[in-house]
């Protein structure tokens, strides 16, 4: 492997990792802070992509569509949290898995009824349709660079929000001790709704970024959900920092394993990595609680 090719593959790994991070950030927040397993997280990824693709068809403007589609996904997430999911916070994890697994089918069927079974087109934004020479002899698609930058930006903003703001403090307080936080005047249920909405918006944003490079179709969130769960567990449940590191690690390991190892072996590499890390650190790389 030449240095140029190795560098290109490294970029591919980072970009895939950032994509996974966007998807798993919301999952780990909801899981870690609300102690709630949301298997329907992949559905928000799908909803985000469908909202944006439809808006692009109407407005013809990628950026405007994404700006409208993000809050739209957040609102859908919040409505579901208020109507259905909040009744399951105090139930055990099996009930949560069952109800959110059921919601995957509900969302898939709603999409099928509204948009049909055929995959829908989602073109690249004109400004990012070319490629950029990132390294002598390495042409890299501009849109993938944009995903990389957007993902890093979101990671930074989340860090600021959670570590350096008052609302971030409420979130951390609510996750450490729900009863004590509410006794001290934090409206925990409101915080949870907000966290859920942000999680849905992040998944939706990941779907919007993935739309132009993958198929926008029913069930598109199901396959990426597995990887997001791996990232969440590996990074330490509830830890944004852990999710970031784990996502990049998985992106890079998956990319290099696939090109350097035989096909059958390359595909299982990330799961072997997960087994090894969990054997060494059972609570993940950066455990959020204790």
């Amino acid at each position: 492997m030449t240095p140029a090719l190795a560098f290109e593959q490294l970029l591919n790994g980072l970009q895939f990792g950032v994509m996974l991070f966007l998807m798993s950030a919301g999952l780990t927040l909801v899981f870690g802070i609300m102690n709630f397993i949301n298997l329907a997280h992949g559905s928000f990824y799908m909803l985000g992509a469908f909202f944006a693709a439809t808006l692009i068809k109407i407005t013809g403007n990628f950026f405007l569509s994404v700006l409208i589609a993000i809050p739209a996904t957040a609102i859908v997430g919040m409505v579901f949290e208020r109507l259905v999911l909040k009744h399951f916070y105090r139930r055990d994890h099996l009930d949560q898995v069952l109800v959110t697994f059921g919601l995957i089918f509900v969302f898939n069927d709603i999409i099928r009824i509204l948009w049909g079974v055929a995959p829908i087109p989602m073109p690249l934004p004109e400004a990012f349709s070319g490629s950029v020479e990132v390294f002598p002899g390495v042409q890299y698609p501009a849109f993938r660079l944009a995903i990389l930058v957007a993902g890093l930006l979101v990671a930074f903003l989340l860090y600021l929000l959670i570590v350096h703001t008052r609302s971030g403090m409420w979130v951390r307080a609510g996750s450490s001790d729900r009863v004590m936080a509410s006794a001290l005047g934090v409206k925990v249920s409101l915080v949870f709704s907000a966290v859920f909405a942000v999680g849905a918006a992040l998944a939706g944003f990941a779907g919007m970024m993935a739309g132009p490079i993958t198929a926008v179709m029913v069930g598109m969130g199901d396959s990426i959900l597995i990887l997001a769960l791996v990232v969440t567990v590996l990074g330490g449940i509830g830890s944004i920092r852990g999710a970031f590191v784990a996502a990049l690690l998985i992106g890079i390991v998956d990319t290099f394993a696939r090109v350097l190892l035989p096909a059958a072996f390359g595909n299982i590499c990330i799961f072997m990595l997960m087994a090894c890390i969990l054997a060494w650190k059972p609570k993940g790389l950066f455990p959020a609680h204790g």
């Binding site: 492997m1 030449t2 090719l5 290109e8 593959q9 591919n12 790994g13 970009q15 895939f16 994509m19 993938r144 993935a210 490079i213 993958t214 396959s223 990426i224 990319t255 290099f256 696939r258 090109v259 096909a263 595909n267």
Partner: peptide, 20 residues
């Protein structure tokens, strides 16, 4: 002759190999 994962999402890595 490359065999990819069934239902793979991202082919960037495979495409870089192909180009090389």
């Amino acid at each position: 002759e490359v065999y990819t994962q069934l239902g793979q999402l991202d082919y960037a890595a495979d495409l870089a190999q192909l180009r090389a």
